[in-house]
């Protein structure tokens, strides 16, 4: 229970975050399409954000730090998505597929 979130226990938010993290983990393991793996990574980052915000707003004196952390996570996730998609487009242009198991361009 909390004063900041109206009768919703913190464990509910943490459970949703944990479930989202595990769904993203599952997606990361079952996909071989590199864009599908990127989608799963976005799920993982958002699960972490839910935890940051939950702990930030459920402290006895709610602090802003959780929100600030989440803002930086969102910033870095946007940069990561831009770079990742650029790399994937380049790989697609070179090899005409984005199967993560078959990309061998940088293997020794």
């Amino acid at each position: 229970m909390s004063h900041s979130t109206y009768g919703i226990p913190i464990t509910w938010f943490l459970t949703v975050g944990a479930l989202l993290f595990c769904i993203g983990l599952f997606g990361l393991m079952v996909r071989r399409n590199a864009i599908g793996m990127l989608l799963s990574i976005e799920l993982l980052l958002n699960a972490a954000n839910i935890n940051f915000l939950a702990f930030g707003s459920y402290l006895k004196l709610p602090t802003i730090t959780g929100q600030v952390f989440a803002i930086f996570v969102i910033t870095l996730a946007a940069a990561e998505a831009a770079i990742g998609l650029a790399i994937l487009i380049n790989i697609y242009r070179l090899e005409l597929h984005i199967d993560a198991d078959k990309i061998t361009a940088m293997k020794l």
């Binding site: 229970m1 909390s2 004063h3 900041s4 109206y6 009768g7 226990p9 913190i10 464990t11 943490l14 459970t15 944990a18 930030g56 707003s57 459920y58 006895k60 004196l61 709610p62 602090t63 802003i64 929100q67």
Partner: peptide
């Protein structure tokens, strides 16, 4: 881990946040 952790129990009063967030 979540279910067995001890969370602060005395913040039960419902309502908007006291500090500005």
């Amino acid at each position: 881990t979540v279910a067995n952790s001890v969370w602060v129990k005395d913040i039960t009063a419902a309502g908007p946040a006291q500090t500005d967030v």
